[in-house]
Amino acid sequence: MQRPGKMISEVLKHVGKTPATTNYPFEKAEMPEHFRGKLQFLPHRCKGCMLCTKDCPSEAIKIKKVGDKKFEAEIDLDRCIYCGQCVESCFIQALVMTTDFELAALNREDLKMTINEKNSPKPPAEEE
């Protein structure tokens, strides 16, 4: 049976309900635990196999040798497509993905990250 205004009751029910939308920049959004966000490089683990560079679909990551068994990563966040292939390829977990997703910047240069032993977080004590 057809009747116009079928939605009236549903619509009126929603007046008192809390809105489904949030006030985003003021109320931060929570990402799930295994979200594929900004890349993090752990230099103390890297062995320099370059598999991540080889498999990256968008040529966003470069590994440079900066000393004896010391490597630094150059990550281009504006090239990165957050697919997670580098994390997949890296068999020593020197690359991890964080849940950080707010990466907008006014300048392209701000999106280039260089991560080496100096500016990376200290390796946790339980390692190796």
Binding site: M31, E33, F35, R36, I81, C83
Partner: peptide, 12 residues
């Protein structure tokens, strides 16, 4: 989808 795959689109 985001919970399982880690993203809302382009699940990888």
């Amino acid at each position: 989808l985001a919970m399982v795959s880690g993203n809302r689109v382009n699940y990888g």
